[in-house]
């Protein structure tokens, strides 16, 4: 018989249980598989009731984030061979989110937070009628490009203990996306976004644990975005204190 690996998967069936339990499945230790393939093997061949989200299986749609041995991971981007077949792999829903069922978590709070930071271009001028792009140099693009790579996979929220302690905290991805627009040379909305972000639940909620950046599968560096935001805000404040007659 071919080599197998054991997946120990958190199950939560709200109609039957008040809290999650674990169920184990033995799956082939296929060296060409990612972890998501192993879960799909369970779903297709062993237990059709195991529930999880997935779609693109190429690391860009952001659906399949889970806790793997206690670490938030995009399961379509983790080779099965990252784990030794001798030890079971523990798979749980992303932590700090309410669980709807099995490995599916409720991310509606994130969508509210995302819209609250106004993640769209804000400008003072009226839209020009001619068909011409706004100019933006490659260097200006580089200023925000990294922060525009967020796929909303929620791994950073699952890595951040502040999210677990304070559910109102805007969180790494939302603040990084706000910063993405603030740093965009086409945008003039930084001040409007300050109203939401210069709050305890905004950037100042961040205590700089730094784990969000470590788990980000797209190297967005939300921790960096937040600290840069804090620096800029603090500098503005200092300027307005020292030069009250016109800091800008």
């Amino acid at each position: 018989m071919a080599e197998t690996i054991k997946l120990t998967v958190a199950r939560y069936r709200p109609e039957e249980q008040s809290e999650p339990t674990f169920q184990s499945y033995d799956v082939p230790y296929n060296k060409d598989w990612v972890l998501l393939d192993a879960l799909n093997h369970v779903k297709n061949e062993i237990d059709g009731s195991l529930t999880f989200r997935w779609s693109c299986r190429m690391g860009v749609c952001g659906s399949c984030g889970m806790m793997v041995n206690g670490v938030p991971k995009l399961t379509c981007a983790v080779p099965l061979t990252d784990y030794r077949p001798s030890e079971p792999v523990r798979i749980e829903p992303l932590q700090f989110f309410p669980v709807i069922r099995d490995l599916v978590v409720d991310i509606t709070s994130f969508l509210g937070k995302l819209s609250s930071v106004k993640p769209w271009i804000i400008r003072d001028d009226v839209e020009a009628t001619e068909v011409a792009e706004y100019r933006q140099s490659p260097a200006e693009l580089d200023d925000y490009k990294q922060f525009s790579m967020c796929i909303n996979c929620m791994l950073c929220y699952s890595a951040c203990p502040v999210v677990g302690l304070e559910s109102e905290f805007a969180g790494p991805a939302a603040i990084a996306l706000a910063q993405r627009y603030n740093l965009d040379s086409r945008d003039a909305g930084a001040e409007e976004r300050q109203d939401v972000l210069n709050e305890h639940e905004g950037m100042w909620g961040c205590t700089f644990v730094g784990e969000c950046t470590k788990v980000c599968p797209k190297n967005v560096d939300p921790a960096g975005a937040i600290q840069l935001y804090k620096m800029a805000t603090a500098q503005d404040w200092m300027k307005s204190m020292l030069l009250p007659w016109g800091a800008k």
């Binding site: 769209w120 271009i121 792009e133 706004y134 490659p138 693009l141 965009d184 086409r186 945008d187």
Partner: peptide, 23 residues
């Protein structure tokens, strides 16, 4: 097509750029 693409540019799509800042 050009109008639509420019519209998306105005909405913030991070198009790759030429050195002169055009798309």
């Amino acid at each position: 097509a050009p109008r639509e693409m420019v519209q998306l540019e105005h909405w913030g799509c991070p198009w790759s750029r030429e050195p002169d800042g055009t798309v």
